[in-house]
Design a protein around this nucleic acid. Sequence first.
DNA 1: TTCATTATCTTGCGGTGCAAGACACTCCTG
DNA 2: CAGGAGTGTCTTGCACCGCAAGATAATGAA
Lengths: 128, 128
Amino acid sequence: MGKEPAAPREQRHSQLLRGVLDLCLLALIAERPRFGYEIVEALGESGLELVSEGSIYPLLARMERNGLADTYRAPSPSGGAPRKYYRPTEAGLAELEAGRTAWLAFRGAVDQALSAGAPTEDTPEEGK
Amino acid sequence: MGKEPAAPREQRHSQLLRGVLDLCLLALIAERPRFGYEIVEALGESGLELVSEGSIYPLLARMERNGLADTYRAPSPSGGAPRKYYRPTEAGLAELEAGRTAWLAFRGAVDQALSAGAPTEDTPEEGK
DNA sequence: TTCATTATCTTGCGGTGCAAGACACTCCTG
DNA sequence: CAGGAGTGTCTTGCACCGCAAGATAATGAA
């Protein structure tokens, strides 16, 4: 005993983000160059409020290392540490496009799987 | 170089499944009791073809251990090892309901985040 | 100088999908 | 009766990654 997860409900969110978080980042920096802090806020506005900096900085660094994004620095206009702006490379844009497709397919598959045994089930799917 | 993952594209699928796979299983056994092999096939029909037995048996066992599902055995009608049927408990149904809600919220958030910098958009970003 | 603000980066932990393979039960054939 | 094939279940070990927590850095104001 004592090995209970204790918070299985909130943990689901963490697991859900996997495999999609990098895509979201790519989409965000594809819209326009952004820096870390800004991205956290942008994600929050999308409804992904639980994403924190500890999640995205390593991810951003990995993307840069893998050649999906490149960066440049610029001083902070409001005083403070200089900002590091991220912007997708060609490879990054390609990855984003592939990822969008994968997400759409996955989303459809999960929707269908979850519709099984749904409570609102009038869906009179023909008997096979 | 030389430490590249080699297959980042196919790996995304694995990561996407996290946090949702248990929900799919719950939905499937909520529709009617099912056994392992059957579940793999059902998932495949939904589009989740890459899910293999190595993924779901441990998951099924975990759900049983956590009181989300209970089981009973029945002989295989077509000869072979006896089947182990899974069916959700009350707690399992509650978890399924909560999970559906979480999935819907997450899905919307990701859709919105991914719509940023979409190619179909007139992206009027000026050349800086 | 010292402090507050803004922002980036690192470490260690914990959860989990999956490939690979071992094991179990039943029927069929000779 | 023995052997084989088909059908299902279960276990081990690994690799991946989000995240809490905290360290670090740069700038401007008091």
